[in-house]
Simulated scan of single mutants.
Amino acid sequence: MHIERHKNHRIGWLRAAVLGANDGIVSTASLILGVAAAGVDAKHILIAGIAGLVAGAMSMAAGEYVSVCSQADTEHADLERERRELAAYPEHEHEEMTAIYVERGLDETLAAEVARQLMAHDALGAHSRDELGITDTSAARPVLAAFSSAASFSVGAILPLLLVLWAPAAVLIWTVAGGSLLLLVLLGALSARAGGASMLVAGVRVSFWGALAMGLTAGVGALFGVAA
């Protein structure tokens, strides 16, 4: 028996988890480096990092919740419209489904029969899936998205903070920068492995943008620290 193991069922949670953790590492490490480059002591660096973690997690949760709520509202409106059209114009809806299956490669007779049988079984489900592109795995879940983003951001943000606690003051900047880049490489590689993509490409991609963000923020901190 040939069994195919695909990765697309992981897209929803994988996207939110990677985005949150990546943002947590990059934004918190960048904040720490910017404050450290300005010449602030370790205690205040840690306080700034914790504040960044809380603010970032809440921002991620609120932003994800609002955006996914907008998606959910659109989906619900489309489904309600489709429900009304199925009740009022069943023949027209059958023709729409037939046209969809013809476009996908079926001949018209077979397409009409497939549409008829699927609509007899679950008309709204068939139109939701094949006309609107809404499935159980892709449907919007605002609360889950908000908690997932906040949690993954917090996990990512905690890691640079732990480096601040562990690193000697003399090498704090280099420790946080190097450790955070390593964490980003590992995150990119793990997410690529979970999604079945290239681990090398993902690791290089995420570390490049992370290094750019941290470098620019550290430069701003050093500039204002010197100016002060």
Rank of each mutant, 00 (worst) to 15 (best):
I134E: 05
L162I: 12
G52T: 00
A150N: 09
L106H: 07
T137A: 13
G188Q: 11
F147K: 00
L132W: 10
T98R: 09
G225D: 03
G34L: 04
A29H: 08
G215V: 06
D122L: 08
A189W: 10
A112S: 04
V206Q: 09
K43E: 14
A197W: 10
I25C: 05
G188C: 10
A192P: 15
V201N: 05
A157S: 11
I45N: 03
A37K: 03
A42T: 07
L79Q: 07
I45D: 04
A21W: 12
V155L: 13
A218H: 08
G49M: 03
I45L: 06
T98W: 14
H6E: 11
A17W: 14
S148N: 10
A61W: 10
A48M: 07
M97F: 06
M58Q: 01
A169S: 08
G133H: 09
V155P: 10
A72K: 14
L132K: 01
A17F: 15
L31Q: 03
D73N: 11
A177E: 07
G125I: 02
L172C: 01
T28H: 07
H121D: 12
G225P: 08
R129V: 03
M1N: 03
L31W: 09
E103G: 11
V155H: 01
Q117E: 15
K7G: 04
A55S: 12
M199Q: 12
D78T: 00
M58C: 14
A88Q: 13
Q71F: 11
E80C: 02
G52S: 05
L106P: 14
A189K: 01
S128H: 02
D130F: 14
R5G: 02
H92N: 00
M214I: 00
E108F: 14
L190T: 12
T135A: 04
A87Q: 14
A157I: 05
A29Y: 10
L212A: 12
I11D: 12
A62F: 15
R5A: 08
S180D: 07
G56L: 08
H44W: 15
L181E: 05
E96R: 07
V143W: 15
T74R: 07
L223H: 05
L19H: 08
S149Q: 09
M58W: 13
A213D: 10
A227N: 02
A112H: 03
G179I: 04
V68Q: 13
A177N: 05
A211N: 10
S128M: 06
L19F: 15
G219H: 02
A123V: 04
M97C: 04
W13F: 12
L14Y: 08
V220E: 02
P142W: 10
H9W: 14
G56I: 03
D23F: 09
E80D: 13
L182I: 06
I173V: 07
E82F: 11
V26A: 01
G133Y: 13
R129T: 06
L181W: 13
R83W: 15
A222P: 06
E95N: 04
G188W: 13
A38R: 02
D23K: 02
H94T: 00
G219E: 05
A51F: 11
S30D: 06
R205D: 15
D73M: 06
K43Q: 12
L182M: 11
L53M: 13
R5S: 08
A227I: 09
